[in-house]
């Protein structure tokens, strides 16, 4: 085996082409986590010969093994086929910025529910997600978002008995 001097750009390109190794690393890390979590505790008893740890231990080992097998597969040129779909255009590079924004909208929703209640948080969620996904009609989006959010809140909270907080706004209307 010859050692060649690699320029940083080429190395980055190699990692990009083999980014699937990240999956292998995550699997391995989870495997270590499961094994460590398992190793610290006691095993079975007379009434429960296997105990709560044995299966977890085997599973942790399996994760480590799969991590290694996946790494070997990727290094030998194998790669997982990205999932196709009717709204999915695999010809374009992954737009991770949109994915990040969408995740941000979800986090914002989670933060807003306890403060402002479902109708408003839901409006923010729908509107934010639609805008992130490329809708260019903000005014119409807000109206649809508010409509969907309010109607679902009334149906779910009022009719179906799913407990969704109404928030201060609905408190005003309710009183």
């Amino acid at each position: 085996m010859t050692i060649t001097e690699e320029r940083p750009v080429e190395r980055a390109g190699w990692w990009r082409a083999h980014s699937e190794l990240g999956v292998s690393i995550v699997l391995g890390a989870v495997g270590v986590l499961v094994v460590v979590d398992t190793a610290l505790e006691s095993g079975g008893s007379v009434s429960d010969p296997l105990g709560p740890r044995a299966i977890a231990f085997v599973l942790g080992g399996a994760l480590l093994l799969l991590s290694a097998l996946l790494a070997v597969d990727v290094l030998r040129g194998g790669h997982g086929e990205a999932e196709a779909g009717e709204d999915v255009d695999l010809g374009t590079p992954a737009d991770l910025r949109t994915v990040g924004k969408l995740a941000g909208v979800l986090v914002a929703t989670a933060a807003l529910i306890p403060i402002l209640g479902w109708p408003i948080a839901g409006t923010v969620l729908f509107w934010g997600a639609a805008a992130t996904l490329g809708s260019r009609t903000p005014a119409r989006d807000v109206l649809i978002a508010a409509g969907v959010s309010l109607v679902t809140w009334i149906v779910f909270d009022g009719l179906l008995g799913v407990d969704l907080p109404g928030g201060p706004l609905m408190g005003v209307f309710g009183a």
Partner: peptide
């Protein structure tokens, strides 16, 4: 429109998870 479709899917996903 696809933005509405997937915004709607996320919306109901969140209601489901919250409920």
């Amino acid at each position: 429109p696809r933005p509405y479709l997937y915004a709607g899917i996320l919306f109901f996903a969140c209601i489901g998870a919250y409920a």
